[in-house]
Design a protein around this nucleic acid. Sequence first.
DNA 1: GCGACAG
DNA 2: ATCTTGTCGC
Length: 233
Amino acid sequence: MVSLTAPYVSGFLAFREVPFLLELVQQLREKEPGLMPQVLLVDGNGVLHHRGFGVACHLGVLTDLPCVGVAKKLLQVDGLENNALHKEKIRLLQTRGDSFPLLGDSGTVLGMVSGQPSPSLSQALRSHDHSTRPLYVSVGHKMSLEAAVRLTCCCCKFRIPEPVRQADICSREHIRKSLGLPRPPTPRSLTQRPVACPRGDSGESSGEAPSPQRQADRTAPGGCRSTAHCQVG
DNA sequence: GCGACAG
DNA sequence: ATCTTGTCGC
């Protein structure tokens, strides 16, 4: 468990979370090199950012590991808007793996919107609610957007990629056990969790979702939680 | 009051 | 992020 001090400010997520994620990767390098992931799925954006350098880029450069930015909401930058047209494109995504590029005013493809990862989920939501939300995938470091989208999609059992989802679940559980239920008077709890996946030769590559390996949770003023996950191809 | 808002 | 409301599926 760690304690964050920097507040969350849109556009500056990396300054709040990268220090701790980087430390975890470094600890893994020296203590469990065999568990070093080949790629990290980061809960946030890569080049889909105000300055073209989101948290996934930061972590990638500092760790020298391939990174993918996976956001749940569109960061409206470079002219990109979560407007009616955008929503219509999302609505047209029909099957698992369907996606469309996010082309900014600058002419740069900043990322891809990935459709319903789960067939069952998409069908259920489509029949009753068109609000099924996509994932916003962007390049973080050392990987093409196409590969990033494919990898992300392959990690999805449900909407959120399993490495990210498990880190989320585990960190919440950790906080629940150590701090108990959050109380209104006290600062909100915030967590952060990186997940590591073993390389193919380890017993884990049984074709299943990468299991969460490590997590670092931290509480801070204004708490929040973020995750960096790693996944093996 | 309204729009924005990665986590 | 967190919270609330509503709906469907298991």
